[in-house]
Structure formats: structure tokens, C-alpha cells
Amino acid sequence: MTLTIDEVAKVALLARLRLSPEELQRFTGQLNSIVDFVAQLQALDTRDVEPLAHGIEVRNVFRDDVLGPALPREKALANAPQRNDEGFLVPAVLD
């Protein structure tokens, strides 16, 4: 398959990446070579194969439902790009 520049621009929006026109051009070429390369996987017949998400399959790991110490607010906010005394500040979401 061949990804067009418009399709790559749509992926960039989904990925929340602002790409310059040059980057878009370059990534379209590179992504197409990589997608062509990985397309060899389609050649395998996997009809009866179960997908494997982890090499070591660990199931149902539970812990007791007890409250442990939480990160103190000041520590949680310490790396915020923008903040006030009690929360993270972001651009307006609603008009």
C-alpha cells in the first residue's frame, strides 16, 4: 500500500504531532518504506494462531484493596509546566 501525504497528516493529528510541510514530506516517504517492509508479515498464514501480547503471560495479579500512601500534591505538581497552588493549568478547553 502507499500512504498519501493527506493520510500521514491525519495520522499526525491523531498522534498530536504538529509536523512542518518538510517533515510531512519526509515522514511520508520513510513511513511508506517501513510499511512496505513490515507488509511481509501478511504472507504468513495465522488463521489458527492466538495473538501473544506478552512473552511471559502473567494473569490476574491482585493486591489487597487497601489505601497506600499517595504522592503529595506538592510533589505531583513540582514538574508542571504551568500550575497554581492546587492544580495544573492548561489553555481553555471550553469557550
Binding site: 513490515v38 508479515l41 501478511q42 504468513l44 495465522t46 494462531v49 492466538e50 495473538p51 501473544l52 501480547a53 512473552g55
Partner: peptide, 15 residues
């Protein structure tokens, strides 16, 4: 389905 799920199936074959 075409890419991610197929890759996970191949992953099992590799293991």
C-alpha cells in the same frame, strides 16, 4: 487487524 493483530500472532509463532 491487518498490522497490529497480525504482528501479535507472528509474535506467538516466534515464541
Amino acid at each position: 487487524d491487518q498490522y497490529y493483530n497480525q504482528a501479535l500472532k507472528v509474535r506467538r509463532l516466534i515464541r
